[in-house]
């Protein structure tokens, strides 16, 4: 991502949907007696935008937490790029190129926008503690190099004017954008977005949609998206998974899913 390849070439190469990168097989997850996910299987293909929808409490966020190793399912197999993952910690998932944003903003409150996004580069920075303390030679070079990458993310998300602002002082919509920036800074190959547009006004939603599509388009990033706004989901997704009470009730192209009677029933049965 963010390389100097001419844009057209990138687009042509990336928008084509590729092979399965993430394959979830018979995943079951429970907390004590609460079954959050029951026997769920679906896959995610390279470069696609794969949405997960469902009523509140359906298990969508739990699904993302399973994918990047925050939760460990009791049953089922997860294959990432063809390799089966045993119990995996989140930082290992990060090292494999999986980044995410959270439903409830999880920025580092005491740090500036710039520093928050810089943490996204953490895995790519190799200097050790002593080099940092001295801050000359390689450590300084590394810091500058990664600062450049971070500035590219800042330009991409159009947040130049707030780079030195402590994130706590930003309005909600911008915080969501900074959180996306932190995830993008890691140059992920798989990006998990948990309700990136929740609580936004129409304009902010449009901006966010544009960023998501651009990320997918320009960098070829595979995206798993949780979103409640059906208009948005049907618009930008390649395929949609529908969960209800921890069970999968639908899976397919937006149109298929929209007309699936079970899905309609689930949505009519709730307050949506």
């Amino acid at each position: 991502m963010m390389n100097d390849m001419p844009q057209e070439a990138v687009q042509e190469q990336t928008r084509r949907i590729g092979d399965v990168v993430l394959d979830l097989q018979n995943i079951s997850l429970s907390f004590g007696g609460v079954k959050a996910l029951t026997n769920i299987s679906f896959d995610v293909r390279e470069h696609e935008i794969r949405s997960i929808i469902g009523p509140n409490g359906a298990g969508k966020s739990s699904m993302l937490n399973v994918i990047n190793g925050v939760y460990h399912p009791q049953e089922g197999r997860i294959l990432f790029r063809g390799e089966e993952r045993r119990k995996m910690e989140p930082h290992v998932a990060a090292a494999q190129g999986i980044a995410r944003t959270f439903q409830n903003i999880a920025l580092f409150k005491g740090m500036s926008v710039l520093d928050n996004i810089m943490t996204g580069r953490n895995l790519k920075m190799k200097c050790g503690l002593l080099a940092h303390a001295m801050f000359w030679g390689p450590a300084q070079k590394e810091e500058i190099e990664h600062r450049k990458k971070v500035e590219e993310v800042i330009d991409f998300l159009e947040i130049q004017s707030i780079r030195k602002t402590p994130v706590g002082r930003l309005p909600y919509g911008l915080q969501k954008r900074v959180e996306l920036g932190r995830a993008l800074a890691a140059e992920p190959s798989l990006l998990l977005l948990d309700e990136p547009m929740a609580g936004m006004n129409v304009e902010e939603k449009q901006d966010m949609c544009r960023f998501i599509l651009d990320v997918n388009d320009q960098f070829g990033t595979t995206i798993v998206l949780i979103e409640h706004d059906m208009g948005v989901v049907m618009d930008i997704s390649d395929r949609v998974v529908v969960l209800d009470y921890g069970k999968k009730i639908g899976d397919g192209a937006p149109d298929e899913v929209k007309n699936n009677p079970e899905v309609i029933a689930a949505y009519l049965g709730t307050s949506h």
């Binding site: 980044a99 999880a106 940092h132």
Partner: peptide, 28 residues
């Protein structure tokens, strides 16, 4: 110390301080 806290080491300390789950998810 000033150098430490303004580079990756310091940022990972502050990240763990502010939100440890998010820190771990980003690879810290």
């Amino acid at each position: 110390a000033k150098n430490l806290v303004r580079t990756t080491t310091g940022r990972s300390w502050m990240a763990v301080r502010d939100m440890d789950v998010a820190a771990e998810v980003i690879g810290i």
